[in-house]
């Protein structure tokens, strides 16, 4: 009975556009959903460093290398902003990180695809970061204060990620025939997985209604996906790159770009662990965590020694 009135007060606050802060009363479901979403988001930032890290040593110029290094470093920072906002909900970071390393937590399935050529780096910045920005711009307005603030910070920085990617795409699209082929091939491979980044269609997304009622999300998966397509089609035509969808066409009635059917079987197979690189990504994360242990131990021992002195 008491919870019932607390729930009503909570929903009224959200309705009024107030932000919920860590120590405010919140329904258990709200807390659980947020922990799940924020930690998945954090893991995605961390695992997202791997496909791009693959190309740091092979960047074609110092300028490109500096840009890519800074971008990958930002992704680490974004992971940390997000872990810190998850912790305000009462989980330990070590607990959440273990869930990633030992396979019980999910992360964005797109990072299980390989980066085969340098053109993939440009395409990831343009499409994958572009899709992430659409999602994060919405999350920056979400009802949970710490998550909202983390996303505001992230969005400010991601803009550079998208632009550095688009610059690479634009440069290669004006390059030699081989570079043109390379960039078109990268776009062909990344386009569809980028669209599935927004999650299953609304009709198959059971959590969405509740998340939208509590303004954790303000737009549905399908709305965000459509927004991304509408933003991206003109960007592709400026650089003369084709999007690999024969059904893509402008709908003058809705003002949207209609697009073809997405391959959800592939999406769910990749989420279940059967994408091209799932095992490789997890192995790389575990090795990095284990190899970092001596650094954490040494810093801890030094801090203990100074405290004792």
């Amino acid at each position: 009975m008491e919870d019932e009135s607390k729930l009503r007060a909570f929903e009224a606050r959200i309705e009024a556009g107030e932000k919920i802060e860590p120590k405010d009363w919140m329904p258990e479901r709200y807390r659980k959903q947020l922990i799940r979403m924020i930690s998945q988001h954090a893991h995605s930032e961390i695992v997202g460093m791997l496909p791009e890290g693959n190309w740091i040593t092979r960047a074609p110029s110092l300028r490109r290398k500096m840009g890519l290094l800074a971008k990958v470093q930002d992704e680490a920072g974004h992971g940390l902003y997000l872990y810190c906002s998850a912790e305000t909900l009462g989980v330990d970071r070590s607990e959440v990180v273990d869930q990633l390393l030992y396979g019980t937590a999910k992360y964005s399935s797109i990072f299980n695809y390989p980066t085969l050529t340098w053109a993939d780096i440009g395409t990831i910045g343009w499409l994958v970061d572009g899709a992430a920005i659409v999602n994060q711009t919405m999350l920056a307005k979400c009802s949970y204060g710490p998550y909202s603030r983390a996303n505001i910070r992230i969005c400010k920085e991601e803009n550079f990620h998208k632009k550095q990617g688009y610059e690479i795409v634009a440069t290669m699209a004006k390059g030699t025939p081989e570079q043109k082929r390379m960039v078109q091939d990268a776009v062909n491979r990344w386009w569809w997985p980028s669209l599935t980044m927004f999650g299953p269609p609304d009709k198959d997304s059971p959590n969405s209604a509740e998340l939208m009622k509590w303004q954790v999300k303000l737009q549905s998966n399908d709305e965000l996906r459509q927004r991304f397509v509408n933003l991206t089609v003109p960007q592709a035509s400026v650089v003369g790159v084709a999007l690999p969808d024969p059904d893509l066409k402008y709908n003058s009635k809705t003002g949207n770009w209609d697009f073809g059917a997405l391959n959800w079987d592939e999406f769910f197979a990749v989420i279940k662990g059967n994408g091209p690189c799932n095992r490789q990504r997890m192995r790389a994360r575990r090795i990095a965590h284990e190899n970092g242990k001596w650094v954490r131990d040494a810093a801890g021992a030094y801090a203990a020694k100074k405290r004792a002195a």
Binding site: G77, Y81, C84, E87, R93, R149, R153, A299, A304
Partner: peptide, 22 residues
């Protein structure tokens, strides 16, 4: 925001890297 660190000195260095890259 927040971060983890073993002592104040490393907390300051991590804070610079996490919250002041620009």
């Amino acid at each position: 925001g927040s971060l983890h660190a073993p002592d104040a000195e490393i907390a300051l260095q991590n804070a610079r890297d996490v919250y002041s890259r620009r």
